[in-house]
């Protein structure tokens, strides 16, 4: 890895939340990403699209380094979040992941009560060695659930196991539990693909509402969703970044031929 990158723009570019430079990634011998460069604007919703196996989820999972749960993953290149290199040996994973929340494809609430799901983050990241007092905790739970529009539905069911909610509620809960530790960036890996159309619409509306307060990077298989619910759009193919522009112009007027073919549904 280079110590002084040729383009140190990330450090001085406050509008860039994520700056990926020359990122390559291997699962064992299989190379999944090839020299990906990407600049994600702070406060915006950016969607990653492309056919299955194009590396969009891999790229997403590199940003909070959750990829590294697999021992055989290797990477080269750099990812900077607000100028900070996340592969720096001094970076603590717990701190990184506090800043970077992740929502998974399959809603995965923890096998705890709704309340404990929301408070999990605060209990993991205890600032001064103590979990918040009961009253503070109550307020945190209410705020987070209000933010994701679940409070009215669940305020009398805070002790119910999170795993027994409807899928839509589960996915909203999975977003709510990220908020109390105040992340700056939310990564979403096809957050609606397990939901029915009504649930999809509700969660999309929620994501749209969170725009501005959080930088959001969202992987989607669903081009209509990318079009509806994102401001910028990145098209990937076979581990390479092909095109990145604002969503409206990518769908109206794609610069790259492969992008155009994909968007028109000629493959993928």
């Amino acid at each position: 890895m280079t110590v002084a990158p040729p383009r140190a723009a990330g450090a001085t570019d406050p509008a860039a939340a994520i700056l990926v430079e020359k990122l390559s990634l291997w699962y064992g011998d299989f190379q999944a990403l090839f020299d990906v460069d990407l600049r994600v604007r702070a406060g915006a919703i950016t969607s990653l699209i492309g056919p299955s196996g194009c590396g969009k989820t891999t790229l997403l999972r590199s940003v909070n380094r959750i990829n590294e749960r697999l021992a055989y993953v290797r990477t080269s290149g750099s990812i900077r979040l607000w100028g900070l290199d996340i592969y720096d040996p001094a970076v603590e994973l717990a701190q990184l992941r506090k800043q970077v929340g992740m929502v998974f494809q399959r809603p995965n609430p923890l096998p705890l009560s709704v309340r404990d799901n929301v408070l999990f983050g605060t209990r993991v990241h205890v600032p001064d060695g103590r979990a918040p007092a009961r009253a503070v905790a109550d307020r945190i739970v209410e705020e987070a659930l209000r933010e994701v529009l679940l409070w009215d539905e669940l305020k009398d069911a805070l002790d119910r196991p999170g795993t027994q909610l409807s899928l839509e509620q589960q996915q909203k809960l999975c977003i709510a539990r990220l908020l109390p530790v105040k992340p700056r960036l939310l990564l979403m890996d096809e957050p609606c693909s397990a939901l029915d159309p009504a649930g999809t619409e509700a969660v999309e509306e929620l994501i749209w509402k969170l725009r501005g307060d959080y930088t959001i990077l969202i992987v989607t298989h669903n081009m209509a969703q990318a079009r509806r619910a994102s401001e910028e759009c990145v098209f990937m193919l076979l581990g390479e970044m092909i095109e990145h522009s604002d969503t409206a112009s990518m769908f109206l007027n794609p610069a790259n031929e492969q992008t155009a073919a994909y968007i028109e549904g000629r493959y993928g």
Partner: peptide, 19 residues
């Protein structure tokens, strides 16, 4: 998926096991 969810929230391995 439980472990992954907890780790993605910044829990250490021991916290994941314990909590």
């Amino acid at each position: 998926t439980y472990r992954e969810a907890a780790e993605a929230m910044g829990a250490t391995r021991w916290q994941v096991i314990l909590k």
